[in-house]
Nucleic acid binder design. Structure first.
Lengths: 305, 305
DNA sequence: TCCATTACCTGACATTAGTCAGATATTTCC
DNA sequence: GGAAATATCTGACTAATGTCAGGTAATGGA
């Protein structure tokens, strides 16, 4: 069976099974949609807009589901402290209790599925499910060029700087390094590429354009999403953008602590060169010559997906 | 992550992804339900009751979906030749064309999912999906005691006899072997256990009760469902039934050609003994002493699942 | 300051999904 | 031969889901 056929066959089988498991949410005189929303809220509450992005629900529909949960006394709504337009929903004590019940029902459903298998089969199932999940998550990650001042971009940059501060021997102060201001990363002077998973930012990377070369900056992937090839995809997207601008050479520098980044650059065809600037936090400098536009998969129908 | 948590996490991720893939069926001004029914019908038509069992739909609801497809000119309905109550739906030329379109859309959706992965990731995904699917199918198999005269039971027995006829050196004639008539396999004289997957029969086994021992007969698993541990589960169910009847010993005989059956019996605690009857097709005779009621998982809440 | 944008809500719908109680024809089982 | 069971269909529902067009308040950039 080829890969496409395998996916379709998988979908058929899994739809059936997952549907059966979700049936457990019923019998609580609440719709499946409402139950899913309640479970997705989490113990510490969540912004309504994040909920909407995650579950991919219509604004009006979600609003109505939330009013229903509120009427049941399961959640309460408050304003976000930062932005008064944004609403935050938080589970009440009753709500947390109800989530616990739903979790118990889900656990039971999952157990009943396992109980018809032998132990080796269970182990194999858990492992295979883990792989499928990881890879589906990888393929659900979306890249897009974003304003570096957007909330999501700022979130990534903050996490990135925090991580550098923690990992570098000497700490990290963004003001001391070579500049990569919002202006410098906004077209046409540069590009900021954001990676999102179901609306949540999980990675970023940036390109600073010069006349005869480009600089790769701000490469970061969230801890929870590493090992999915996201860094590689961001880098490729940045290279595509550079090619479109007919930039013949890419340069970047990195710190000795960031070993996984060095591995990525080497695997992507960058070769280490002598220092070409005096970035205080850098220990390694890399370059890659860009050849004519590579046959890009992404430029086909896919870009719209 | 334990197995139960892994399954739940998997469900969450996969629901999202599968839902996205099914979205492709839309935009054909036909409901998702109708599209699924149309695709499930297959090129050669299908009995309405099998369709109902497979998709687990309400009789009235399915009927209405079928009327809709008929009105669109995509299917036609006819009586089953064997049983005039049963209706068979067959795709028209237009219907087959439409299924082809839907298949193409599904393929595209699957490909768009793959295109965001690297080749090693694709290979891993296909393999993991295959495992998950196989194991979910295994856990979706249901066992039940059935009248040996039922249509499903007769189907299994026919396939079983066909297979014996093909695999035995000397062919096979059910009349020549030791009897296992419908009467002998109906409670309280005996039991016929049927395994079904989404309503389709995929295996069987039978127990013939005597005063001081029981005979295992008619063990069969459909070719398409082997390697899922179904044979083992059928055998265990028969042993449970024998234990309930306080039968202390089980006996069975088998042909040298059925090597996988011999492996199953040995793995299940049967030991080969000297011939205890003159079954003409047998080359190996097995026995197993039944100990007091084993702690049965199946007797708990699961039996209702 | 003003205007476009964002986040959310409400009302008004249309469609889909799912259920239940009969009605009819046929078959199966005494 | 007649009662019970089976397979399907129809009508009459209810609930859930999904969509759209406004409306209000807050925000942010020119």
């Amino acid at each position: 069976m080829d890969q496409v056929a395998q996916i379709r066959s998988f979908n058929r089988t899994v739809t059936h099974q997952v549907g059966a498991l979700e049936g457990r949410f019923l019998g609580r005189d609440r719709s499946l949609g409402a139950s899913r929303v309640l479970c997705e809220i989490g113990p510490n509450g969540i912004e309504v807009r994040r909920l909407r992005a995650r579950l991919d629900l219509d604004s009006g529909y979600l609003s109505r589901l939330l009013r229903g949960l509120e009427a049941e006394g399961l959640i309460r709504t408050s304003q976000s402290s930062g932005d008064a337009r944004v609403r935050v929903v938080t589970p009440t004590t009753a709500g947390k209790k109800e989530v616990a019940v739903l979790n118990r029902l889900s656990d039971e459903a999952a157990r009943s599925l396992l109980e018809r298998l032998t132990e080796p089969q269970r182990v194999a199932l858990a492992s295979a499910m883990g792989s499928v999940e990881r890879l589906l998550r990888a393929s659900a990650v979306r890249l897009q060029v974003e304003r570096p001042t957007s909330r999501a971009a700022q979130y990534c940059l903050t996490r990135y700087f925090e991580e550098l501060a923690a990992r570098f021997d000497a700490g990290f102060d963004p003001a001391r390094g070579i500049s990569a201001t919002a202006d410098e990363l906004t077209p046409p002077r540069g590009y900021f590429v954001l990676a999102t998973l179901h609306g949540d930012p999980v990675g970023c990377g940036a390109l600073k354009c010069h006349a005869h070369f480009g600089e790769i900056k701000r490469m970061w992937v969230a801890d929870s999403s590493r090992g999915l090839g996201i860094g590689k995809r961001i880098l490729q997207r940045l290279e595509d953008l550079a090619r479109k601008r007919r930039i013949p050479l890419l340069r970047l520098e990195t710190n000795k602590a960031l070993t996984e980044a060095q591995a990525l650059y080497q695997a992507s065809g960058y070769r280490e060169v002598r220092p070409f600037n005096n970035e205080p936090y850098a220990h390694h400098w890399f370059e890659k010559a860009l050849t004519a536009a590579r046959p890009s998969v992404r430029s086909s129908s896919l870009s719209a997906v």
